[in-house]
Amino acid sequence: MSAKKKDKSSAETMVKKEREVSKAKLIPVHIMGKRYDVPEGLTLMKAMEYAGYKFIRGCGCRGGTCGACGTVYRKPGDYRLQVALACQKTIEPDMHITQIPFFPANRAHYEFADLTSAPEEVFKLYPELFRCVACNACTKACPQGIEVMDAVSALKQGNITVAAQIGFECIQCGLCTSRCFGELVQYHMFQLARRIYGARITPRAEHLIEMTKAIDEGRFDNTLEKLRHMSEEELKELYRKREEEPVTAGEDWRPKDKTYL
């Protein structure tokens, strides 16, 4: 069998499977103003592919976490422009859609090592923060349902912790920024907030420091050296003897055998 033929057949099975799924009736959508009839129930992304588009930009994880497929759409009879992720939004009849595969947003450069947890760090790097007029367009645009404006307000008030926590689910698609009246780049600001919070505000894990110290001091070197040279049978024996920490065990659980700790 030729490589190309086989290569195609795999993809074809997938497409075919998808088609069978959508024996559904065809509905019209307008991709950048041009009408195509596609099976109902598809996502905007799969509808575009069904129509014959092959993505280079505007397509990433296909699972709602990478932010590559920001899309603007308008429904018939509605003056409003709405935004969504193409891989997440299901098509509706007569929708008009166009993608925003890249957004030329401003991102501040910084030396992370020099940053403190002071709120002024954010103000200095992103002075446009104070251009926010609290219109809430960002929150309405967010496909993740994040309270974007609340996080922006928190930053204005100097509360990096709250901004980091609210902005944790941000997938950096840039749709908030595309709708922002004040030209803020919310998703880069949240990134900064998260890093400051993670490295400078939350307490560090003591147990992790202890473990890395023990490893550096060579506490496990002999044990690992022995394991490395063991036969499959010897390893299997040790594997069988492992004591299982129960799923429901709390942090206070301790194993009976402490030889290898």
Binding site: M211, F220, T223, L224, L227
Partner: peptide, 30 residues
């Protein structure tokens, strides 16, 4: 393996090997 009171690289090693049917490259796992 970060919680020294109940875990160590020893147990992590055995788990990795057991998951990989004991065929893994021992040097890399260690």
């Amino acid at each position: 393996a970060t919680k020294g009171e109940k875990d160590s690289p020893y147990y992590h090693y055995l788990d990795v090997m057991g998951g990989g049917h004991f065929k893994n490259d021992p040097d890399i796992v260690a």
